[in-house]
Computed example of a mutant assay.
Amino acid sequence: MNWKSFLTGVSVGIISGFLASEWVSQKGKVSPEKALSHAKAKFKERGPISGSWIQMTTERFEKNNITYDVYKGGVSRTVDDTLEQYEFVSDAKTGSIIEVYPL
């Protein structure tokens, strides 16, 4: 066996291992972009929105003695020339909104 073949095999193995670990860590989670898209769609049911944001990392959130991995985000809209802002908490596994807070 020559060194080129050996190093190529080791490189492919390392890269495959890294990609597999990334896939496993993300498996079962909704992307933050999808969670934001879902939240925006729900807020748009009550009128147009003017801005939105979402955190790209998950964090722990407890509600009713149940712990969730969540994304936190926000939406703003103008109603009768008044700016309304809301923060939402979205389940990272399903993308559904768990809680909404007016700011």
Rank of each mutant, 00 (worst) to 15 (best):
residue 2 N to W: 12
residue 3 W to Q: 14
residue 4 K to T: 11
residue 5 S to T: 11
residue 5 S to Y: 15
residue 6 F to K: 10
residue 6 F to S: 06
residue 6 F to T: 05
residue 7 L to Y: 14
residue 8 T to A: 12
residue 9 G to H: 05
residue 11 S to Q: 07
residue 12 V to F: 08
residue 12 V to P: 06
residue 14 I to F: 11
residue 15 I to K: 09
residue 16 S to D: 12
residue 17 G to S: 10
residue 17 G to A: 09
residue 17 G to N: 08
residue 18 F to K: 08
residue 18 F to H: 10
residue 18 F to Y: 15
residue 19 L to W: 05
residue 21 S to F: 07
residue 24 V to M: 09
residue 25 S to M: 10
residue 25 S to A: 14
residue 26 Q to D: 13
residue 26 Q to T: 13
residue 29 K to S: 09
residue 30 V to F: 00
residue 30 V to I: 04
residue 30 V to M: 03
residue 30 V to T: 02
residue 31 S to D: 05
residue 31 S to H: 04
residue 32 P to F: 01
residue 33 E to F: 04
residue 34 K to Y: 05
residue 34 K to L: 06
residue 36 L to D: 02
residue 38 H to W: 03
residue 39 A to C: 02
residue 41 A to L: 13
residue 42 K to R: 06
residue 44 K to D: 14
residue 45 E to Y: 07
residue 46 R to W: 13
residue 46 R to Q: 15
residue 46 R to S: 14
residue 48 P to Q: 10
residue 48 P to E: 13
residue 48 P to N: 10
residue 55 Q to G: 07
residue 55 Q to R: 10
residue 55 Q to D: 14
residue 55 Q to V: 07
residue 56 M to S: 12
residue 56 M to C: 07
residue 56 M to L: 13
residue 60 R to N: 14
residue 60 R to K: 15
residue 61 F to A: 00
residue 61 F to I: 00
residue 62 E to D: 14
residue 63 K to F: 11
residue 63 K to C: 05
residue 65 N to S: 15
residue 65 N to P: 13
residue 65 N to K: 15
residue 66 I to S: 08
residue 66 I to G: 04
residue 67 T to K: 14
residue 67 T to W: 12
residue 67 T to N: 15
residue 68 Y to T: 00
residue 69 D to L: 02
residue 69 D to Y: 00
residue 71 Y to V: 00
residue 72 K to F: 04
residue 74 G to I: 03
residue 76 S to W: 14
residue 76 S to N: 13
residue 77 R to D: 05
residue 78 T to W: 09
residue 79 V to N: 09
residue 80 D to T: 12
residue 81 D to I: 06
residue 82 T to I: 15
residue 83 L to C: 07
residue 88 F to Y: 09
residue 89 V to D: 00
residue 91 D to L: 00
residue 94 T to G: 04
residue 94 T to N: 05
residue 95 G to W: 01
residue 96 S to E: 15
residue 96 S to A: 10
residue 97 I to A: 01
residue 97 I to Q: 03
residue 99 E to K: 07
residue 99 E to L: 04
residue 102 P to E: 13
residue 102 P to Y: 09
